[in-house]
Computed example of a mutant assay.
Amino acid sequence: MSVPPPLSPNPAALEFLLHRRSRPPRMLGNSAPDREALRTLLAAATRVPDHGKLEPWRFIVLTAEACKRLAVLTKSRGAALGVDERRLEKDHSGFVDAPLIVAVISSPKPHPTVPESEQYASAAAVCVSLLNAALAAGWGAVWLTGWRATDRPFLTQGLNLFPHESVAGFIHIANEVRVPPDRPRPDTDALTTWVNT
Rank of each mutant, 00 (worst) to 15 (best):
H51S: 10
C67S: 03
E36K: 09
F59W: 05
K68I: 09
S8D: 10
P56V: 12
S76D: 12
H111D: 12
A44M: 08
F59L: 05
S117P: 04
T40K: 11
T150W: 13
K75W: 11
N10W: 07
T197G: 15
G78S: 01
I101C: 09
R21D: 02
A121I: 09
L135S: 04
L155P: 01
A134R: 01
E15S: 15
P49W: 02
E165R: 03
H51G: 05
A103I: 01
F162K: 15
P49S: 02
D189E: 15
A12N: 10
A13Y: 11
L14I: 14
H92E: 14
W57Q: 01
G78W: 00
D84A: 15
P49Y: 03
P99E: 09
W143S: 03
A190E: 12
A168R: 02
H172N: 02
R152C: 07
N175H: 11
E116T: 14
K75A: 13
T193M: 11
H164V: 10
R20V: 00
H92L: 11
L7Y: 06
R26S: 13
V195I: 15
N10T: 12
R87V: 07
P110E: 12
A32H: 08
G169T: 01
S76K: 12
P25T: 12
G29T: 10
G94K: 00
P6Q: 10
S129V: 06
L7I: 05
L135N: 00
L62R: 00
A64K: 15
S76H: 12
V126F: 00
A136G: 13
W57L: 02
A45S: 14
A174F: 00
S2V: 13
S31N: 12
L81N: 08
N30H: 13
D97Y: 09
R26D: 14
L73T: 08
A44W: 07
G29Q: 08
G158K: 00
L17E: 10
A149I: 01
N196W: 09
P5F: 08
R47P: 06
T156H: 10
R39Y: 04
T188Y: 13
T40I: 13
K90H: 04
G52Q: 09
A32M: 08
Q157P: 00
I101F: 04
F154P: 00
S31I: 10
H51V: 07
P99R: 10
L14F: 12
I60P: 05
M27A: 14
R148S: 04
P115M: 06
